[in-house]
Design a protein around this nucleic acid. Structure first.
Lengths: 184, 184
DNA sequence: GCGCTCATGTAAAAAGTTACATGATTTC
DNA sequence: GAAATCATGTAACTTTTTACATGAGCGC
């Protein structure tokens, strides 16, 4: 049982999902490719943390929809008692920043401008998710937080973090681009 | 040549460092253990991207101090022309948030309070680094940015990001703790 | 005395990515 | 006609972590 395995169980605590759904859902905080998730789900099923149902679809390939077993729910409760490991970030742009003086202001601007677009795309996606949650009744329509004991409380808190982080990253990148432009 | 290898070259563009120094320096944006860095440095040396000098120390073990070769500098310039890969963050606490309703407000508070301490320690460390840079003349004493063509420009921009991010994370965690406390 | 920092390395295991494999439907 | 999305899986490879290995000096 590694962190990603627990992460899959954690997402299944909200609703049932296919492996493909889980692959999409893990991206923001624990990115994983489908080739890592499918074997993990198979082993979680063998160990009886999850079970699945075959769901036949017309116009789409059939899928396996996974849900938590009682053993899976118990494993989640025990995992929550343990302190969370420190977060890890790996960012190539930050490594490039250490040798930024090896390029010129134009080259540096290009790097940061690409990153700015990435952060803006992220913000737009998070804002769309936020709207969708409110429209679908997962979050209260007035913008307030769902109650703590609702299964959506965690999503609300996470989405708020994602929104704040995306906005900060946009501001920081714009600030850095202005500094670079001033030197031209 | 993988990303970490370029990252090591990038850090060596600022000054000469031992493998141990580089291991410490990579932590904020590309964490790596010494067991990953030492073999990488050996192969960078074999391929003539870096060279090293044995430095004997009294009261400390001897060390190998690495510096860039011309080939290493050229590799950095070419790497800077390529766009930077998207950043990756993996955070166990965010995975735990998805099943937060499997614990009680006390359990949730404990998780977030531990994380708050982590973010506060980070902020204190970044603030200390900022002071140190100003005292040692790497950054202007008045708090302004070093010029773009100075080798410290990148460090200044990175440190600013680290400071802003740490402050945002502290605010978000305090906000989440208040939400949890309200439900008690 | 015990654990921490500095300092370097190797070996084995785990985690994660890329490539191989298939196939229908939809959108440009 | 080409590319993207949905959908699942395996094999090979790379990257990263953990464990093994050594050793001096420092602070509590």
């Amino acid at each position: 049982m590694n962190t990603l395995s627990y992460g899959l169980l954690s997402m299944l605590s909200q609703a049932s999902f296919s492996g493909y759904d889980l692959m999409l859902k893990t991206q923001p905080f624990w990115p994983a490719k489908h080739s890592q998730i499918y074997p993990l789900l198979a082993s979680l099923e063998r160990e009886e943390y999850v079970r699945f149902e075959h769901v036949a679809q017309s116009e789409r390939p059939d899928k396996k929809v996974y849900s938590l077993t009682d053993k899976g729910k118990q494993a989640l409760r025990e995992w929550l008692q343990q302190p969370a490991a420190d977060p890890v970030t790996r960012d190539e742009l930050m490594l490039k920043a250490y040798c930024l003086s090896y390029t010129d202001p134009d080259g540096a601007s290009r790097l940061f401008a690409e990153r700015l677009e990435y952060y803006r795309r992220k913000l737009r996606r998070h804002e769309a998710t936020s709207c969708r949650f409110r429209e679908e009744g997962d979050f209260p329509a007035d913008g307030s937080a769902p109650p703590f004991d609702s299964p959506r409380f965690g999503s609300y808190v996470l989405l708020e973090k994602a929104l704040r982080t995306a906005r900060l990253n946009i501001e920081w990148t714009e600030w850095a681009l202005a500094l670079i432009a001033n030197s031209r």
